[in-house]
Amino acid sequence: MERLLEVKDLEVSFKTYAGEVKAVRGVSFHVDRGETVAVVGESGCGKSVTMQAIMRLIPMPPGVIKNGTIVFDGKDITKLSEKEMEHVRGSEISMVFQDPMTSLNPTMKVGAQIAEGLIKHQKMHPKQAREKAIEMLKMVGIPNAEKRVDQYPHEFSGGMRQRAMIAIALACNPKLLIADEPTTALDVTIQAQILDLMRDLQKKLNTAIIIITHNLGVVANLAERVLVMYAGKIIERGSLDDIFYNPRHPYTWGLLMSVPTPDLDKSKRLASIDGTPPDLFAPPVGCAFAARCEYAMKICYERYPEDFPVSDGHSAACWLLHPMAPKVKPPIGKGVTL
C-alpha cells in the first residue's frame, strides 16, 4: 500500500517549573492510505501528545518537538510555517477531539462550524457551504438535518455532538482523520453507532484513520494495525490478530487480561497491572515497564531493549524475546472475546 504518513524518532518534551517532562521519547510508525491504525495505552503514555505533534497543535512554549520528522503525503510538516500548516489542518489532516462539548464552539451554530472549513479551505460561497453542511449532517446520520444545521451544540445530544464533530472533520474530505477517544463519553449503543459510522465513511471516502483509545473493544471493531504505547514509547506493534492472538510484551498481556470477557470466572478478581507508570521527568534507563513486570530481569533495568521482530510486521521491545532470555509462556494468547 502507498504510505501516507511516516513518523520517525519523534521526541516531544514540555518545559515546566519542576523540570523537563519527556512525554514522547523516540516514536516511529507509519500509516498507509485508507488504513486504520489504533494507538492504545493507559493515560499519560503519550498517545494524544504524539497526535497533537502531527497536527502541530503542541503549545510552544511550554512544549517543544526536540527531534524527529513527520512526513505527510511526501512533505515534512515539522518544517512548514504556521501559515502553511493552516492549509494542512482541516483540509488534509483532521482531528476529532475527545470531548465534543468542549471542542465545539457553544456560541456558533453547528452548520456554521461545518461551513467554516469549507469556506476557508475550498473557497466555497457561504450559501453553497451551508448546503454542504446539511449534506454532511445527513451523511453522519443526524435526522432532520435542514433544521439541525441552525441549532447550537447544547441542543444536540452527546452522540449527535460527536457525529457533528466527525462531520466537521470530514467536510473537506481529508486524507487522514485522527480520532482521539471518539467514544469515551458515550454509552455502548451510541459507541457502536459511531464506530459503524466511521467504518462506513472510511470505505466511502478512503480516509486513513488513526484512533487513539484505551478501549480494546473499539480496537477490535475498527483497527487493522495496533501500536501499544507505554511511557512515551511504542513497545509493541503488529496487526490486529498479532496483538490479540499472539501478544509478546508483558504490558500487552496485562492490558488484554484486564478486559472482562463473557466467560470470566465471577469468583475471581479481574486482573490488573500493579504499580504506576514511571515519572517522565526522569525516565528510567532501561525498560520503563520493568518495575511493574513480574518477568523483569537485571538487564531490563540497565538497558532499553531493541525492537525484536516476532513475525512480518509484528515486533516488541522486550528482553524476553532475546535468544538468550529464559523461555516464558505467555499467560494470554488465544485472543480476547470483545
Rank of each mutant, 00 (worst) to 15 (best):
C45M: 08
C45S: 15
G46E: 12
K47G: 10
K47M: 09
K47E: 10
K47R: 12
S48I: 10
S48Y: 09
T50P: 05
M51R: 01
Q52E: 15
Q52R: 14
I54Q: 10
I54N: 10
L57E: 02
L57F: 04
I58S: 06
P59W: 00
M60F: 00
M60E: 14
M60Q: 12
M60P: 01
P61D: 09
P61L: 08
P62E: 03
G63H: 00
G63Q: 00
V64H: 05
I65L: 07
I65S: 04
I65V: 13
I65C: 02
I65D: 02
N67Y: 00
N67K: 08
T69D: 09
T69Q: 11
T69E: 10
T69L: 01
T69W: 00
I70M: 11
I70S: 10
V71G: 03
V71I: 15
F72T: 10
F72W: 08
D73K: 09
D73G: 04
G74S: 09
D76H: 00
I77G: 07
I77T: 02
L80T: 08
S81R: 03
E82H: 12
K83R: 14
E84D: 14
E84K: 14
M85T: 05
M85D: 06
H87F: 11
H87I: 07
H87L: 13
H87N: 14
G90T: 02
S91R: 13
S91P: 00
S91F: 01
S91E: 06
S91Q: 05
S91I: 00
E92V: 00
E92S: 05
E92F: 00
I93S: 09
S94F: 06
M95A: 11
V96S: 03
V96I: 14
V96W: 03
V96P: 09
V96E: 03
V96T: 07
F97T: 11
Q98F: 05
D99Q: 05
P100W: 04
M101F: 13
M101I: 09
T102E: 01
T102V: 08
S103E: 11
S103H: 12
S103I: 11
S103C: 10
S103N: 10
N105V: 14
P106T: 05
P106G: 02
M108D: 01
M108I: 07
M108R: 13
K109W: 07
K109Y: 12
V110M: 10
V110L: 15
G111A: 15
G111V: 12
Q113T: 05
I114V: 15
A115L: 04
A115T: 06
A115R: 07
A115C: 13
E116H: 12
G117S: 14
G117N: 13
G117D: 14
G117E: 11
G117V: 13
L118M: 10
L118R: 04
L118D: 07
K120E: 09
K120S: 06
H121W: 08
Q122A: 02
Q122K: 15
Q122F: 01
M124L: 15
M124P: 09
H125D: 15
P126D: 12
P126C: 15
K127V: 13
K127P: 01
Q128Y: 02
